[in-house]
Nucleic acid binder design. Structure first.
Lengths: 206, 206
DNA sequence: TATAATATAGCACTATCGTTCTATTTGTCA
DNA sequence: TGACAAATAGAACGATAGTGCTATATTATA
């Protein structure tokens, strides 16, 4: 998909997630800074030909995303999260790229108006958060979290990714496992990068 | 909700489910045989006041359903599952009753054409299946499972409910925790009632 | 380089959509 | 029965949406 095309497609997806209905051609034009409505139309026709969207001719806001069964919100799976690997986070560049994989997240599990992304868990290292190998963690992209929220964080001194509840204490940060039997760890505020807030965990049992 | 109101609301719901976008006022008028657009508008205003829909003023097809039901697959939450309590299972009577609570389950997490129900986990007794207090387990109602499947079972001799992988062995049944560090338990085939197959686990992180 | 396919730009037409206004009928309850 | 809210009916208006058309620029390809 071309650059323009991808941007338009991503915008439509986010618009539908936020508002509940699809944007008009004019709204796409404005948001994606396209010079004319007809050019948007041109790209929409291409997107339809390529099988990414469906459109009903003449119908205002008649754009429909296809694939994923249309049930639940499509959330891009940006990669895997594992103990010893940095956490992939969306940047302004990568955000509009259509992820290879998408998961559907039930509407009532996603806060409204947040940009969400998902990571597939690899390995057993997150079991202290009751997260198993293969689970999908859905995250809201935030740089800072509030006390008690479950976050995905990269611990730069340990070179380790982890899912923990975060508590800001004087001069240090306490990371508390969801499993209350396990002890918290304490890190220096300089050694932690909060990569997102965990919003939901999905497990498909085979 | 009045008769007319209900009909209009149901039409909108079905329309969105089918087409992926909301109907216009005129389309509602025709489909529900309302004499005028303004009357439709009148009822839409009422539906919005009552909290059933949300509308963006002036936006064509700008109707959005509020609450549950239209995006994910609605699955009834029949009750709670806890270690020491019997597992609520759907019967022919209770099946068609509208459950107090419903969850949306993404279509790609549900096998096709199965009647699914959900249970809310209470307590920490299912941690050996990486299932935390408050999680929702989605189940397919089956009386027998296949080897290796994760099932919800009632152990009549121990008076205990549990989530385990089931393996049929000669003269006994092995119940294997998802957590491989924990040891399996063995039960007499007469002492176990398989209440359903676990299909998915949903966790909404606060 | 020649040539076609793709992408960009702008304009104008027509259909249609949501809204507003007024008037009338039906239903409810004291 | 009277009073008032809810529901019905129809017409008209202004805004805007999707599309068609033409012309040009850019990129890919042989």
């Amino acid at each position: 998909m071309s650059d323009r095309r991808t941007k338009i497609f991503a915008f439509i997806r986010e618009f539908i997630r936020e508002k509940g209905y699809a944007p008009t051609v004019g709204e796409i034009q404005k948001a994606c800074q396209v010079s004319s409505k007809s050019l948007v139309n041109y790209h929409l026709e291409a997107l339809e030909r390529e099988g990414h969207i469906r459109r009903d001719a003449g119908v205002t806001r008649g754009i429909e995303l296809i694939g994923l069964g249309r049930r639940g919100w499509p959330v891009p799976v940006l990669g895997t999260i594992a103990a010893g690997e940095p956490i992939p986070v969306p940047t302004e560049d990568t955000w509009h790229i259509v992820a290879e994989e998408m998961v559907e997240v039930p509407a009532d599990m996603l806060p409204r108006n947040v940009q969400a992304f998902a990571l597939r868990v690899r390995g057993k290292s997150m079991i202290d958060a009751f997260v198993d190998d293969g689970d999908i963690v859905v995250m809201e992209a935030v740089a800072a979290a509030e006390n008690g929220q479950m976050v995905a964080a990269w611990l730069s001194d340990r070179q380790e990714a982890t899912l923990k509840k975060i508590y800001y204490e004087p001069d240090r940060i306490r990371l508390q496992p969801a499993n209350q039997r396990m002890k918290p760890i304490y890190v220096n505020p300089d050694d932690i990068e909060v990569q997102g807030r965990v919003v939901a965990v999905l497990r498909k049992v085979k």
